[in-house]
Nucleic acid binder design. Structure first.
Length: 561
DNA sequence: TAGCGAATATTC
DNA sequence: CCCGGAATATTCGCTA
């Protein structure tokens, strides 16, 4: 084990294969707070540091790729919350330097700023890092699945930093075209775009409200009611059922308004200044283990603007989508052989139709969503009994998770991420309902809250285990893409990925890879193989398939079509 | 002026 | 009519 000396990062060389190895790193290039932990042969070097999002951007800016790491802060958080390690020294110990929320990662163009260097003062030192590694090792001893989760989560952190480094290729001209088609030409200043202004006038005319601001929902609601419309909100689904000439322009206005404010010209200038969209992914940012994002709304890119996501010249976007991921994960989690069989080698929902479980693909999908989310009403509830009969093991699994949640208990994913306990307020409401003079209101509030927490824990085990599958997938894809080596000519992709296929976007069960033209087909093969590997990592020999839909195209929208 | 919640839209 | 999980972001409008 080698400890890198404390020094600010500057340029760093890399090994022949781009892998930074302990012993090859001169003392003056290692960032303060980085420990290279040599846990095996030379291939097994794994960097351990307190926060990938803090350190890795600097290395990438210098063209250095890290093959493997352990993110001690992410690992610490997992181990502190996991039921598997509840009795460990780590989980029961006092709050320490690895418990805090991370600093915001540096701006992409400021990774070497004086500010960042100054911030290194209050990072954990080498002794603390080594002690933390020891404490974590002790906690995970004998828990192979949890160890896999820490490795996968850390690999995800590397991938997230790399995606921010390279950015998602974005064609500003195409985006502008999309906006102009729908909104009209870009207005000066903060005036309403032309199409929105016209629609606003129509709404005012139809409602007889010449001064109405259509952006003010209370004002719009008041004017609708003044015109005799019995509506309680201005939401789309409620307005759709109303017959009045103001409704159509109002709905159209709201749609354009959403596009303009969420992904309009202001967004474009702010988030895609240079033809690359660089979202900040927050690894483990969602309670279930899914990634969050901050800045730019990376996880809600509307389909309308995906045309603007375009590969560089000589490159392609390989878009991969794990089909029916959550139900398949549930089949593996519950070891439900019938359910796995329904999805083997085919669309899972179609498989349910073929097996006579339901009579249409739509019903299969609806019923499955009800099973995963805890739906109890409507069409979803109507097909649930049939799913219950066909896949008893899977249903029993999510039902057990729901019942545990209703009792206020913790549930865990396959690899060992645990749900939070309900808060103090939850317990208070439950206690109030048990009181002798509790009214019907208090009891009904408690019941509704109980069921809501059950729906949360029911979904937690599936969504969380699906997130673990996705982490393993992305880690495998990342490793395999690097192993493919270089191709193509010089382009505008920065080192260390200049002539290599690389991940550029991740969305729960979907990956986008930017690849040199001639590698696109081979990349698709690797992505498929990585999905199979992720399935084996989580579910071993249990025969559940994870098919991936794949397409290569110049633009994201074309590949999704 | 800053901060926050409600309402609404978007994604999976 | 409400009656499914997880999110982020914007705008309005109230409060400190």
């Amino acid at each position: 084990m080698v400890v890198a000396p404390p020094a600010p990062v500057r340029a760093g060389p890399e090994g022949a294969d781009g892998l930074v190895r302990v012993g090859e790193v001169p003392g003056d290039v290692a960032p303060h707070g980085v420990v290279g932990a040599a846990v095996g042969g030379e291939k097994a070097v794994r960097w351990a540091w307190d926060d990938t999002a803090r350190w890795y951007p600097r290395l990438l800016a210098d063209g250095v790729r890290v093959e493997r790491c352990l993110d001690l802060r992410l690992a610490h958080r997992l181990l502190r919350g996991s039921a598997t390690t509840a009795g460990s020294r780590l989980a029961t110990g006092p709050v320490g330097p690895f418990d805090g929320t991370p600093d915001a990662p540096p701006e992409p163009d400021a990774v070497d700023s004086l500010f960042d260097v100054a911030r290194t003062e209050d990072r954990p030192g080498a002794d603390e890092l080594l002690a933390e590694i020891g404490t974590q090792d002790e906690a995970v001893a004998g828990h192979a699945r949890l160890r896999l989760l820490l490795v996968a989560e850390s690999a995800g952190a590397l991938a997230a930093a790399e995606m921010r480094h390279t950015g998602l290729p974005w064609d500003r001209a195409v985006h502008d075209e999309v906006l102009a088609e729908q909104l009209g030409p870009r207005p000066l200043g903060d005036a309403r775009p032309p199409r929105m202004a016209e629609l606003a006038e129509q709404v005012r005319a139809e409602l007889g409200a010449p001064r109405l601001n259509p952006d003010s929902l209370p004002d719009v609601l008041r004017e609708l009611r003044r015109n005799g419309l019995a509506v309680n909100s201005t939401s789309k689904w409620e307005l759709q059922g109303v017959d009045h000439p103001a409704v159509a322009p109002l709905l159209a206005y709201k749609k354009l308004s959403r596009l303009n404010s969420a992904n309009g010209w202001t967004w474009l200038d702010r988030w895609v200044p240079d033809g690359r969209f660089r979202p900040e992914y927050v690894v483990g940012g969602v309670v279930t283990g899914r990634w969050g994002s901050s800045g730019g709304g990376a996880l809600q890119l509307p389909k309308q603007v995906r045309r603007a996501v375009r590969a560089d010249d000589g490159w392609r976007l390989v878009v991969a989508d794990a089909a029916q991921l959550e139900p398949r994960v549930l089949a593996g989690l519950a070891r439900d052989e019938q359910m796995a069989e329904a999805g083997r080698g085919r669309d899972l929902y179609q498989g349910m139709v073929d097996a006579g479980v339901v009579d249409s693909r739509d019903h299969a999908k609806l019923g499955m969503l009800g099973a995963l989310y805890g739906g109890t009403t409507g069409q979803s509830a109507a097909v649930l009994p049939r799913i219950n009969r066909a896949f008893p093991a899977a249903m029993a699994h999510v039902e057990a998770a729901a019942r545990a949640g209703e009792r206020g208990e913790v549930v865990s994913t396959l690899l060992g991420r645990s749900s939070p306990r309900p808060g103090a307020q939850w317990n208070q409401v439950q206690a109030d309902a048990l009181d002798d003079d509790a009214g019907a209101g208090a009891q009904s509030r408690a019941r509704s809250q109980t069921r809501a927490w059950g729906r949360f824990t029911r979904n937690f085990v599936v969504q969380g285990t699906a997130a673990e599958w996705a982490l393993c997938w992305i880690a495998e894809v990342r490793r395999r893409l690097w192993a493919m080596g270089e191709a193509g000519g010089e382009g505008r992709v920065p080192a260390p990925f200049a002539r290599r296929p690389h991940l550029v976007y991740f969305l729960h069960d979907e990956l986008v890879i930017h690849a040199p033209d001639e590698l696109a087909d081979a990349v698709a093969d690797q992505v498929r193989a990585a999905a199979a590997a992720a399935g084996r990592l989580l579910f071993g020999d249990f025969p559940v398939d994870f098919p991936v839909s794949l397409a290569a195209a110049r633009s994201y929208a074309d590949a999704k079509g």
